[in-house]
């Protein structure tokens, strides 16, 4: 009995989530205007959360941040860790697929990759040793990032101003 109703409610919940996240058809009987209002607010909420937790990314994307994040957010659901930083990293990957990244955006992505590890329960700060070596796309400069247990993350070859 519970198993049957679980299936039925799970289906409507899934339909509702698809309507909110993917813009799919709204399940019958729901207030369409209000469901669409929530759908819009979900992308705004993700954008605001990202701006709060990762301001340097927003600055580097520049004036087009709102438009670009909205385009990304409407086509890409929140990563399963439901974490704003992970969302930001996926946004950087999406941006890089759209147009060649600037040095600044590449640096943001590398810094994230050196520091964070994604797990099913969310983001985990990486421990122990880690290394990132990359050639920046615009200046062609080499960048070296090193994580050690006692000094955290350090970078060499960072362009001035970064």
């Amino acid at each position: 009995m519970i198993a049957t109703s679980r299936e039925a409610i799970a289906k409507t919940q899934a339909d509702l989530v698809r309507a909110l996240v993917h813009g799919a058809a709204i399940p019958a009987g729901f207030d369409e205007q209000r469901v669409r209002a929530v759908a819009r607010s979900l992308v705004n909420k993700r954008r605001q959360a990202l701006a709060r937790i990762w301001p340097s990314l927003v600055k580097r994307v520049g004036d087009s941040f709102v438009a670009k994040f909205t385009e990304y957010g409407q086509t890409h659901p929140l990563p399963s860790s439901a974490n704003a930083l992970t969302d930001g990293r996926a946004f950087l990957a999406w941006l890089a697929a759209q147009e060649p990244p600037t040095d600044g955006l590449r640096i943001e992505a590398l810094a994230y990759d050196l520091r964070w590890r994604e797990t099913p329960l969310g983001l985990c700060r990486r421990g122990g040793f880690g290394i990132k070596i990359a050639r920046l796309p615009q200046s062609g400069k080499w960048l070296l990032g090193l994580r050690t247990p006692w000094r955290g993350d350090r970078w060499w070859g960072m362009p001035s101003g970064d």
Partner: peptide, 18 residues
Amino acid sequence: RAAGLETGHLLPIPRTPA
């Protein structure tokens, strides 16, 4: 969340006996 999709939002549930 449902069907593997995260919403990042608290969504209402039906107030029914089921």
